[in-house]
Each structure stands twice: as C-alpha cells, then as structure tokens.
Design a binder for these strands. Structure first.
Length: 222
DNA sequence: ATCCCGAGGG
DNA sequence: CCCTCTGGAT
C-alpha cells in the first residue's frame, strides 16, 4: 500500500466511525486492566457478561483481593482460561496495592511486570485509559494488517511495529479501535465480507468475497 | 471444527 | 519455536 492509500484507508474508517470506543465495559483504569486480562481467547460479549456483576462488587484492587480467588473464579467460570485468569487477577491486584499504591501504572515495563499482563494488554491500557498512541495487536488486527497489506508481519509484534511505521499521526490514537472493529465486523476471520467493505479497493486480499445470495446492499463499517 | 481484544512456560 | 489453559458462539 502506498502512503496515500494508507492515509485513505484510515480516513475512511475514521469517517465511518468518528468516535470509536472499546466494546469491553470499564469504569476506571483498574477495571479496564482486569477486563482486558480476562479477554484472552474470549469474546468481549462473554467478558462483559461476567464483569458486569463482578465490578459491582469489586472495581478496585483492594476489593478484588478481599473477594478472593475462589469467588472470583465463580464470576468468570463462563470465560475461557478461568483458572489462570483468576489467579493472575488476584496476584496483580495485590501487586498494585503493594507496589503502586493501588493505582494502575502508566508505563509499559511496570504494566508488563504484572502477572497475566503482556504486551497486548499493556498497549490497550496505555491507549484507552491513558491516551498513549500505542496500537495493541490482537487476533483481529493481526489478521487485518496481514490480509489487507496495510502492515504485514509474521508475529503480532512485527505487525505492531509495522503499524507504528505506516500509521499517520492523526490516526495513531484511534488506530487500535478502527482496525479492531473493522476486523471484527467486516474483515472477519472465517468469511470476510468484502462486498460491503469500504476499503476493498485499497486491499491486497484476493479474491474479494462476493455478496451471498439475498445479502442486503449495505456498505458499512463496524 | 474454528475462533474469540493472550500469556506463560518449556 | 512449541504447548497449554478453557468456555461459549458460530
């Protein structure tokens, strides 16, 4: 993709969705951190279903530690990988209390030292909660970057660095949201819906998928 | 059978 | 690099 095409790619996604938001429910940096940590290999819908009741009882590290691993596990039983997630969230909460006065640290190194928090989760928290221009590469963005030719790479980290190189300044803050929503609702893993994609003419993916019989002619993004 | 806003361990 | 953890949706 040329520089002009990349700019046009983002310009259209931004125009279609001027104020993109996370679909994970969160009310403060701590709950965002927990929600993202819980979201590994799970849909945002299933995470929100669990965190709704959970955050009513515990929306801060002290309350979470008080709740305890056993009861936390009951809240997140319907999410995958619940065993290690419950353990990590309690450990992480205790670490926030011990080392950061109960606050969520804003820098990458501190975030990634928390159990259950890797580069992707740290990037989401820095971007969504603290306004950093990080681009968290999840399964959707990894796919979109490679499939479209916007930012190809063999690993999520390669795609992230490629995105940082090609993404124009005005779009860096929202890039994560625009790309993830595009991947989730249009550039889907199994059956990408190229016929209603607003950036199909800029995309390297071939062949473009045709509209299924009876599909409504709705051109939309996210 | 495959995928979902991954991370940690070997 | 590989494997494992894990339920729910499609």
């Amino acid at each position: 993709m040329t520089e002009e095409q990349v700019f046009e790619f983002y310009r259209r996604l931004a125009e279609a969705n001027p104020a993109p938001e996370t679909e994970l429910r969160w009310i403060n940096p701590y709950t965002l951190l927990v929600a993202v940590a819980l979201s590994a290999q799970a849909t945002d819908v299933s995470v929100n279903k669990a965190t709704g009741p959970l955050f009513e009882l515990a929306d801060n590290p002290a309350a979470m530690v008080e709740l305890g691993e056993e009861r936390l596990r009951d809240f997140i039983k319907t999410i995958g990988l619940y065993n290690s997630k419950a353990k990590n969230v309690i450990l992480l909460s205790q670490m926030l209390l011990d080392e950061y006065g109960g606050e969520v640290p804003q820098d990458r190194d501190a975030l990634e030292r928390l159990p259950g928090v890797g580069r992707k989760t740290a990037n989401v928290v820095m971007n969504c909660a603290f306004g950093a221009e990080t681009i968290a590469v999840d399964t959707h963005i990894f796919r979109v970057g490679n499939r479209t030719g916007l930012a190809p790479g063999k690993t999520p980290l390669h795609v992230e660095l490629a995105l940082e190189r090609v993404t124009p300044k005005p779009f860096r803050l929202g890039a994560h949201h625009w790309l993830i929503l595009h991947g989730r609702y249009v550039c889907k893993a199994r059956k990408p819906e190229c016929w209603r994609c607003i950036v199909r003419d800029l995309c390297a993916f071939e062949p473009k998928t045709p509209p299924p019989p009876g599909a409504t002619e709705v051109i939309a993004d996210a």
